[in-house]
């Protein structure tokens, strides 16, 4: 079936089986591989994207639910060639080890800070609990979220 939606600010149209999860449309059909496959059952957070402004797992969301939706992936959060403050903070705090889960972590953090620009430690931990990192970068993730909050509030 033909489905129209907005991807990273651009009108996008695909013709695929409507039950295909959004993740695979983004990755295989459209070639945006920044959004990662980790578990396929919305448990690990690697595939996190923004769906109408909410951090959402894309691996279980059928594409037919995306009709007319505004979708943002990791490739779409830097604006006009300028890194998003969360991306900047992630680099400055040297968060990534293997890096595979980090696109999902960044997308969750961006969404948290959009909703709550000065989260407390507890709020950060609660928001980030759904994103798994086997390298164990949680310590720096938390630092980076705080740093990003400062960067955004000083803009």
């Amino acid at each position: 079936m033909k489905i129209d939606f907005e991807l990273n600010g651009k009108p996008t149209s695909v013709d695929v089986d409507g039950t295909t999860p959004l993740l695979w449309v983004i990755r295989d059909t459209l070639g945006f591989t920044g959004t990662k496959f980790g578990c396929g059952m919305a448990q690990c957070g690697c595939c996190t994207i923004h769906f109408n402004g909410m951090a959402t797992r894309s691996c279980m969301l059928p594409i037919q639910a995306a009709k007319g939706a505004k979708i943002t992936t990791i490739e779409g959060i830097a604006k006009d060639g300028k890194l998003h403050p969360v991306q900047q903070a992630w680099i400055e705090k040297d968060v990534a080890q293997c890096g595979y889960c980090q696109a999902g972590q960044v997308m969750t953090a961006v969404n948290l800070l959009e909703r709550n620009s000065k989260p407390t430690d507890e709020e950060i931990e609660r928001a980030m609990e759904g994103n798994i990192c086997r390298c164990g970068t949680y310590h720096r993730i938390k630092d980076a979220v705080k740093h990003a909050s400062e960067l955004m509030n000083n803009q």
């Binding site: 990791i74 890194l83 992630w90 990534a96």
Partner: peptide, 13 residues
């Protein structure tokens, strides 16, 4: 900083 840090956070890695 990890040489690939920017590529990683941009989803380009």
């Amino acid at each position: 900083v990890n040489f690939d840090a920017e590529k990683i956070v941009k989803g380009e890695m």
